[in-house]
């Protein structure tokens, strides 16, 4: 799918972004050439030309391949669905971590995140729940000490605990 239609999909997405970006420049200072709309407009023009070029050449290439009945999808090495799921879950885990750590603080949220993430990435034959928990606790303690006592950075203690006592 990505190998066959990747360029068409990506250039279309970029093209849509470029049009939105260019439209937003009408709200900027366009009175003189050195106004603050100059560079955004230059960027949109160059990006638009490049995206159009990629789109047109990939469409032409696809048409040619269809005429010659060349199936590029055959040679495509498909990534395992389990690994793709790992990528999506990793993004979800980081996002959840970004949401919970300012609320529950570093000390609570980090071991939870590390345990789930290590468990997720571990190969199936090495998936034992105790190992990620122990590793998560050790590394949370280590990172806490490094940040607090070596780099003197304040780690979030969590807004949830304030006003509860």
């Amino acid at each position: 799918m990505i190998k066959k239609y990747g360029d068409i999909i990506s250039s279309t997405v970029f093209l849509v972004c470029t049009v939105i970006y260019y439209s937003a420049t009408f709200k900027l200072n366009t009175e003189n050439i050195s106004g603050n709309a100059l560079v955004p407009r230059l960027i949109s023009c160059v990006m638009g030309i490049c995206c159009l070029y990629i789109l047109v050449t990939s469409c032409v290439k696809l048409c040619k391949e269809k005429k010659l009945h060349v199936n590029t999808a055959v040679s495509e090495t498909k990534g395992s669905p389990a690994n793709k799921l790992k990528v999506i879950l990793t993004i979800i885990f980081i996002s959840v971590y970004a949401v919970i750590f300012p609320i529950f603080g570093f000390v609570i949220s980090t071991p939870i995140y590390l345990t789930t993430q290590i468990y997720l990435l571990s190969p199936k034959d090495k998936r034992k729940i105790l190992r990620p928990i122990i590793l998560a606790l050790i590394f949370t303690g280590f990172i806490y000490v490094i940040f607090t006592y070596v780099f003197f950075l304040l780690l979030p203690t969590g807004s949830f605990w304030y006003g509860r006592g």
Binding site: I94, Q117, I118, L121, S122
Partner: peptide
């Protein structure tokens, strides 16, 4: 193994 190192890298980057 990377599956141990990478989550730690992620935490360090985020924090």
């Amino acid at each position: 193994p990377n599956y141990i190192l990478l989550p730690i890298v992620l935490v360090m980057c985020t924090i």
